[in-house]
């Protein structure tokens, strides 16, 4: 993707053991994505607090992407459901602030998912650019 001054800023929550190595691999292979993507690595996506997601929006991030482990999560088989609950709660809080629910996305990414990660980032950047500024 061709970054511009208006490239949407995306905060990615990755997971230390599974999705973060995949994101590293994208860099290692020099697969380019928007430089407006910033990553915070967590032990598990089920440990992300909705207040952090809200804080990111308050600070000016245009979108939040959760690079989850999905069913590969080494901590809990219930991880996808729990992460989903966190996203639902975040979307409820976003609605209160009139932030479009489309500004948060989740996908399962593994340690070799370099290309899918880049694909997700390019796609999400386009979606966020299309949304434009929120009414709120």
């Amino acid at each position: 993707m061709e970054p511009t001054k208006k490239s949407p800023k995306i905060l990615v929550f990755s997971t230390d053991k599974i999705s973060d190595p995949g994101i590293d691999q994208a860099g290692l292979r020099k697969l380019h994505y928007s430089p407006s993507v910033y990553v915070i690595s967590m032990p598990c996506s089920s440990g992300i607090k909705p207040r952090w997601i809200m804080h990111a929006f308050e600070q000016g991030f245009d979108g939040v992407f959760i690079a989850a482990d999905g069913h590969e999560c080494s901590y809990s088989a219930t991880c996808p459901d729990r992460t989903n609950t966190i996203i639902n709660e975040a979307q409820r809080l976003m609605e209160e602030k009139k932030i479009s629910p489309k500004r948060i996305r989740m996908a399962a990414l593994c340690s070799v998912c370099a290309e899918p990660f880049v694909g997700h980032m390019n796609n999400f950047s386009k979606i966020l650019a299309d949304i434009g500024p929120d009414a709120g």
Binding site: I40, S46, G47, K49, W52, Y75, S76, C79, R82
Partner: peptide, 25 residues
């Protein structure tokens, strides 16, 4: 240290070291 317990606390009374509100925010 998975942190699964942290978002479910209604009063935000549980956190994982190195992943505190202060550090992440």
């Amino acid at each position: 240290g998975c942190g699964i317990c942290t978002p479910v606390c209604p009063v935000d009374a549980i956190e994982v070291a190195q992943y505190t509100n202060l550090e992440i925010e």
